[in-house]
Protein backbone atom coordinates (compact mmCIF):
# COMPACT_ATOMS: atom_id res chain seq x y z
CA UNK A 1 0.00 0.00 0.00
CA UNK A 2 1.28 3.42 -0.90
CA UNK A 3 -0.12 6.95 -0.73
CA UNK A 4 -1.10 7.05 -4.43
CA UNK A 5 -3.11 3.87 -4.12
CA UNK A 6 -4.86 4.99 -0.93
CA UNK A 7 -5.62 8.39 -2.42
CA UNK A 8 -6.88 6.72 -5.61
CA UNK A 9 -9.32 4.47 -3.77
CA UNK A 10 -10.54 7.31 -1.58
CA UNK A 11 -11.04 9.48 -4.68
CA UNK A 12 -13.05 6.68 -6.28
CA UNK A 13 -15.14 6.38 -3.13
CA UNK A 14 -15.60 10.16 -2.98
CA UNK A 15 -16.83 10.26 -6.60
CA UNK A 16 -19.53 7.75 -5.72
CA UNK A 17 -20.47 9.66 -2.57
CA UNK A 18 -20.79 12.87 -4.63
CA UNK A 19 -23.12 11.11 -7.06
CA UNK A 20 -25.23 9.64 -4.26
CA UNK A 21 -25.42 13.03 -2.53
CA UNK A 22 -26.56 14.62 -5.78
CA UNK A 23 -29.25 12.02 -6.31
CA UNK A 24 -30.49 11.98 -2.72
CA UNK A 25 -30.46 15.71 -1.96
CA UNK A 26 -31.60 17.10 -5.31
CA UNK A 27 -33.78 14.05 -6.11
CA UNK A 28 -32.36 14.35 -9.59
CA UNK A 29 -30.09 12.32 -11.84
CA UNK A 30 -30.02 14.94 -14.60
CA UNK A 31 -26.77 14.76 -16.54
CA UNK A 32 -25.97 11.24 -15.36
CA UNK A 33 -25.81 8.43 -17.91
CA UNK A 34 -27.72 5.34 -16.87
CA UNK A 35 -25.77 3.42 -19.49
CA UNK A 36 -22.47 4.23 -17.83
CA UNK A 37 -23.95 3.29 -14.46
CA UNK A 38 -25.25 -0.01 -15.88
CA UNK A 39 -21.76 -0.75 -17.14
CA UNK A 40 -20.26 -0.07 -13.70
CA UNK A 41 -22.61 -2.60 -12.12
CA UNK A 42 -21.40 -5.13 -14.68
CA UNK A 43 -17.77 -4.12 -14.06
CA UNK A 44 -18.03 -4.58 -10.30
CA UNK A 45 -19.98 -7.82 -10.45
CA UNK A 46 -17.54 -9.39 -12.87
CA UNK A 47 -14.48 -8.16 -11.00
CA UNK A 48 -15.60 -8.86 -7.46
CA UNK A 49 -16.89 -12.38 -7.87
CA UNK A 50 -13.55 -13.15 -6.25
CA UNK A 51 -15.21 -12.16 -2.97
CA UNK A 52 -16.31 -15.80 -2.88
CA UNK A 53 -12.99 -17.34 -3.85
CA UNK A 54 -10.31 -15.18 -2.28
CA UNK A 55 -9.48 -14.74 1.39
CA UNK A 56 -11.07 -11.67 2.95
CA UNK A 57 -8.97 -8.55 3.28
CA UNK A 58 -9.50 -5.82 5.83
CA UNK A 59 -8.89 -3.18 3.16
CA UNK A 60 -10.10 -4.61 -0.16
CA UNK A 61 -13.20 -6.50 0.97
CA UNK A 62 -15.11 -3.49 2.42
CA UNK A 63 -14.26 -1.45 -0.69
CA UNK A 64 -15.53 -4.21 -2.96
CA UNK A 65 -18.77 -4.52 -1.03
CA UNK A 66 -19.27 -0.75 -1.03
CA UNK A 67 -18.60 -0.44 -4.77
CA UNK A 68 -21.06 -3.25 -5.50
CA UNK A 69 -23.76 -1.91 -3.19
CA UNK A 70 -23.48 1.73 -4.28
CA UNK A 71 -23.41 0.99 -8.01
CA UNK A 72 -26.55 -1.13 -7.69
CA UNK A 73 -28.19 1.54 -5.52
CA UNK A 74 -27.48 4.25 -8.10
CA UNK A 75 -28.96 2.19 -10.93
CA UNK A 76 -31.95 1.37 -8.75
CA UNK A 77 -32.58 5.08 -8.08
CA UNK A 78 -32.27 5.99 -11.75
CA UNK A 79 -34.57 3.22 -12.92
CA UNK A 80 -37.19 2.89 -10.21
CA UNK A 81 -37.29 5.87 -7.83
CA UNK A 82 -40.52 7.61 -8.75
CA UNK A 83 -39.09 11.15 -8.58
CA UNK A 84 -35.48 10.52 -9.62
CA UNK A 85 -36.31 8.44 -12.69
CA UNK A 86 -38.28 11.33 -14.19
CA UNK A 87 -35.16 13.50 -14.23
CA UNK A 88 -33.15 11.04 -16.30
CA UNK A 89 -32.15 12.51 -19.69
CA UNK A 90 -33.14 9.41 -21.57
CA UNK A 91 -33.25 11.05 -25.00
CA UNK A 92 -29.70 12.42 -24.70
CA UNK A 93 -28.25 9.20 -23.31
CA UNK A 94 -27.78 7.82 -26.80
CA UNK A 95 -24.51 5.88 -26.71
CA UNK A 96 -24.95 2.27 -27.80
CA UNK A 97 -23.32 0.82 -24.71
CA UNK A 98 -24.10 -2.79 -25.53
CA UNK A 99 -21.57 -2.52 -28.34
CA UNK A 100 -18.82 -2.05 -25.77
CA UNK A 101 -19.53 -5.31 -23.99
CA UNK A 102 -18.84 -7.82 -26.75
CA UNK A 103 -15.40 -6.46 -27.81
CA UNK A 104 -14.34 -6.36 -24.14
CA UNK A 105 -15.49 -9.96 -23.67
CA UNK A 106 -13.61 -11.10 -26.77
CA UNK A 107 -10.48 -9.24 -25.65
CA UNK A 108 -10.73 -10.79 -22.18
CA UNK A 109 -11.12 -14.24 -23.71
CA UNK A 110 -7.80 -13.87 -25.53
CA UNK A 111 -5.83 -11.53 -23.28
CA UNK A 112 -5.92 -12.54 -19.60
CA UNK A 113 -3.44 -13.52 -16.91
CA UNK A 114 -4.75 -17.07 -16.84
CA UNK A 115 -7.51 -18.82 -18.77
CA UNK A 116 -9.88 -19.46 -15.89
CA UNK A 117 -13.44 -18.23 -15.30
CA UNK A 118 -12.45 -15.73 -12.60
CA UNK A 119 -9.41 -14.41 -14.47
CA UNK A 120 -11.26 -13.93 -17.76
CA UNK A 121 -14.06 -12.11 -15.93
CA UNK A 122 -11.49 -10.00 -14.13
CA UNK A 123 -9.86 -9.04 -17.46
CA UNK A 124 -13.29 -8.29 -18.95
CA UNK A 125 -14.04 -5.96 -16.04
CA UNK A 126 -10.73 -4.13 -16.48
CA UNK A 127 -11.37 -3.58 -20.21
CA UNK A 128 -15.00 -2.61 -19.72
CA UNK A 129 -14.17 -0.15 -16.95
CA UNK A 130 -11.71 1.60 -19.28
CA UNK A 131 -14.48 2.49 -21.73
CA UNK A 132 -17.52 2.63 -19.42
CA UNK A 133 -17.29 6.42 -19.12
CA UNK A 134 -18.00 6.94 -22.85
CA UNK A 135 -21.82 7.16 -22.60
CA UNK A 136 -21.40 9.64 -19.73
CA UNK A 137 -19.03 11.84 -21.75
CA UNK A 138 -21.37 11.78 -24.73
CA UNK A 139 -24.27 12.80 -22.50
CA UNK A 140 -22.27 15.67 -21.00
CA UNK A 141 -21.38 16.93 -24.45
CA UNK A 142 -25.03 17.26 -25.31
CA UNK A 143 -25.87 19.05 -22.02
CA UNK A 144 -26.00 22.82 -22.26
CA UNK A 145 -24.98 23.23 -18.64
CA UNK A 146 -23.44 20.77 -16.28
CA UNK A 147 -24.20 21.13 -12.58
CA UNK A 148 -21.32 21.24 -10.11
CA UNK A 149 -22.00 17.88 -8.51
CA UNK A 150 -22.08 16.11 -11.88
CA UNK A 151 -18.87 17.86 -12.97
CA UNK A 152 -17.12 16.97 -9.72
CA UNK A 153 -18.36 13.39 -9.93
CA UNK A 154 -16.87 12.84 -13.38
CA UNK A 155 -13.66 14.63 -12.42
CA UNK A 156 -13.13 12.45 -9.34
CA UNK A 157 -13.97 9.34 -11.33
CA UNK A 158 -11.28 10.22 -13.85
CA UNK A 159 -8.76 11.32 -11.23
CA UNK A 160 -9.03 7.95 -9.49
CA UNK A 161 -7.54 5.99 -12.39
CA UNK A 162 -4.93 8.68 -13.02
CA UNK A 163 -3.80 8.19 -9.40
CA UNK A 164 -3.64 4.45 -10.03
CA UNK A 165 -1.18 5.20 -12.84
CA UNK A 166 1.08 6.88 -10.28
CA UNK A 167 0.60 3.91 -7.95
CA UNK A 168 1.68 1.55 -10.75
CA UNK A 169 4.77 3.62 -11.51
CA UNK A 170 5.62 3.60 -7.81
CA UNK A 171 5.09 -0.16 -7.52
CA UNK A 172 7.16 -0.82 -10.61
CA UNK A 173 10.18 0.85 -9.00
CA UNK A 174 9.54 -0.04 -5.37
CA UNK A 175 8.15 -3.58 -5.69
CA UNK A 176 9.11 -4.74 -9.20
CA UNK A 177 5.45 -5.20 -10.05
CA UNK A 178 4.67 -5.44 -13.79
CA UNK A 179 1.00 -5.63 -14.80
CA UNK A 180 0.42 -4.96 -18.48
CA UNK A 181 -3.34 -5.56 -18.55
CA UNK A 182 -4.41 -2.99 -15.95
CA UNK A 183 -1.64 -0.60 -16.97
CA UNK A 184 -2.68 -0.30 -20.60
CA UNK A 185 -6.38 -0.32 -19.78
CA UNK A 186 -5.80 2.30 -17.08
CA UNK A 187 -3.87 4.46 -19.50
CA UNK A 188 -6.69 4.27 -22.05
CA UNK A 189 -9.23 4.97 -19.31
CA UNK A 190 -7.38 8.09 -18.15
CA UNK A 191 -6.74 9.29 -21.71
CA UNK A 192 -10.48 9.26 -22.41
CA UNK A 193 -10.87 11.92 -19.72
CA UNK A 194 -8.17 14.23 -21.16
CA UNK A 195 -10.65 16.51 -22.90
CA UNK A 196 -12.93 16.61 -19.90
CA UNK A 197 -10.04 17.40 -17.53
CA UNK A 198 -8.98 20.26 -19.78
CA UNK A 199 -12.39 21.94 -19.77
CA UNK A 200 -13.03 21.16 -16.11
CA UNK A 201 -9.80 22.84 -14.99
CA UNK A 202 -10.33 25.74 -17.39
CA UNK A 203 -13.83 26.44 -16.07
CA UNK A 204 -12.59 26.11 -12.51
CA UNK A 205 -9.76 28.58 -13.05
CA UNK A 206 -12.02 31.08 -14.78
CA UNK A 207 -14.72 30.54 -12.19
CA UNK A 208 -17.20 29.70 -14.93
CA UNK A 209 -19.82 27.06 -15.26
CA UNK A 210 -18.53 23.87 -16.84
CA UNK A 211 -19.57 23.37 -20.44
CA UNK A 212 -18.13 20.97 -23.00
CA UNK A 213 -17.91 22.20 -26.58
Amino acid sequence: MNAFRLLADLTHLLSIIILLVKIRTTKSCAGISLKTQDLYVLVFISRYLDLFTRPLSLYNTPFKLVFLATSITIVYYMRYHKVVKQTYNKDSDTFKHYFLILPCAVLAFFINPKFTFIEVLWSFSIYLEAVAILPQLVLLQSSSNIDNLTGNYVFMLGAYRALYLLNWIYRFFAEDVVRWIPWIAGLVQTALYADFFYYYIKSWRNNERLKLP
Partner: peptide
Protein backbone atom coordinates in the same frame (compact mmCIF):
# COMPACT_ATOMS: atom_id res chain seq x y z
CA UNK B 1 6.38 -11.52 -8.82
CA UNK B 2 3.86 -14.02 -7.55
CA UNK B 3 0.37 -14.88 -8.68
CA UNK B 4 -0.96 -13.91 -5.27
CA UNK B 5 -0.01 -10.29 -5.75
CA UNK B 6 -1.97 -9.94 -8.96
CA UNK B 7 -5.32 -9.17 -7.43
CA UNK B 8 -4.30 -7.01 -4.53
CA UNK B 9 -5.80 -3.94 -6.20
CA UNK B 10 -9.38 -2.82 -6.62
Amino acid sequence: VGEKKFHDEL
